[in-house]
Design a protein around this nucleic acid. Sequence first.
DNA 1: TCAGAATCTTACAAAATTGTAAGACAAAAG
DNA 2: CTTTTGTCTTACAATTTTGTAAGATTCTGA
Lengths: 224, 224
Amino acid sequence: MPEILLIEDDKTLAKNLVRYLQTEGYTVHTADGQKKGLQLFGTYHPDCVLLDVSLSDGNGFSVCSAIRQSSDVPVIFLTASADENCTVAGFEMGADDYISKPFRPRELIARIQNVLRRHTSATKLLRCQNVIIDPSRGVVLKNENEIFLSALEYRLLLIFFTNVGKLLTREQLADELWTFSGEFVGDNTLNVYMKRLRDKIEDDPQNPSILKTVRGMGYKAVQS
Amino acid sequence: MPEILLIEDDKTLAKNLVRYLQTEGYTVHTADGQKKGLQLFGTYHPDCVLLDVSLSDGNGFSVCSAIRQSSDVPVIFLTASADENCTVAGFEMGADDYISKPFRPRELIARIQNVLRRHTSATKLLRCQNVIIDPSRGVVLKNENEIFLSALEYRLLLIFFTNVGKLLTREQLADELWTFSGEFVGDNTLNVYMKRLRDKIEDDPQNPSILKTVRGMGYKAVQS
DNA sequence: TCAGAATCTTACAAAATTGTAAGACAAAAG
DNA sequence: CTTTTGTCTTACAATTTTGTAAGATTCTGA
């Protein structure tokens, strides 16, 4: 299912790679140079780019940085040798991985799967006990069912779930919620929001198992 | 500033690595075995783990999968040789990268920086023209200033910003916003939300430059 | 046990959100 | 040009969110 763009001017290698990648189920587009590569990139928006560093019409670094202008698609460099400078320069250009020729097909597949896994899991879920935030949809689930939070409740829960296990003081929480607008909210307001949030996400709001009070300090979300 | 946990039972190598990493500004904790490694992991919550695959008291894979139970911290395997099976198995265990001994210190640093960059940029911003969503805070900025969106407006904008350039049909949008609750909303409701959203994020809502109408089809967010 | 402090709970108005309806407007087709 | 279709705009009530106040409850230390 994933689409791969291969930018490689060694025609024999390219042909072999295409065939191998296709047998693994990938759709492959091939370009034999920089210009064609960027053009195809614009056309197909591939899920992963395999990029030869030593193209005849310019080096791969410039292609990579051009791609990075508009996209954070995973890029894997194909290097002629395990040249350290190459590696370092490639990473600095925003490459996600590199592999030195000659390489074993199996290893290339492993690296492709690896960067794809990492990239797609960018839509990471935040989880604490039976409650899940899906930040990429702005949605909260409790036991698989969606629950409604208001904008402020959502942001408050987000703070806790990105800091599970950490103590958050009242001041930190209030700052994060209200500082932006320079608003002054009363001292008790946070208490009220904590209660509202607990009422919505806790199984037993009177005995919270997720959002714990740390008396005199603040609150923290606990994993179990 | 970042903390690194090194799990390595070759004392000489460990000592050299620690010294080198420290000169590069990292704080390093060292463990000479599986048990100690997991213990230190729990204590320090490092930003990155360097893990020897061949520990005397058990292989590194089990350590990696133990770590993955509770954390998605980046793990880099140190392998005795460029053994393909090792590589593949490591990635399947959730490793983020691997490096074969002997390796050049500069390359290790490059790989560490690479995984750290990737990992911290998990708090990725979604950007389209002069409007930015910070999903990790649930906040929307226009020209550096925070603007308020209601819960539904936020989710609607999130759909557009995770699909910049793509046409989204009315049906797709309505499904994504209202299907969960099985609600039936009127045919015109989405129009009204589009207007409200444009009024808040567009410089000239009558001539939207971000959220474009595609007559007969739906809408799309455009990069420029 | 008691007093003081911290947190929780309830109740309340002001403000904002939500969904609908009715008409205005704009683009495409006849 | 006129009609039709699709989208935009405005206005409106029901509901929800938001912040505050006042009192209840719980915890801690003397």
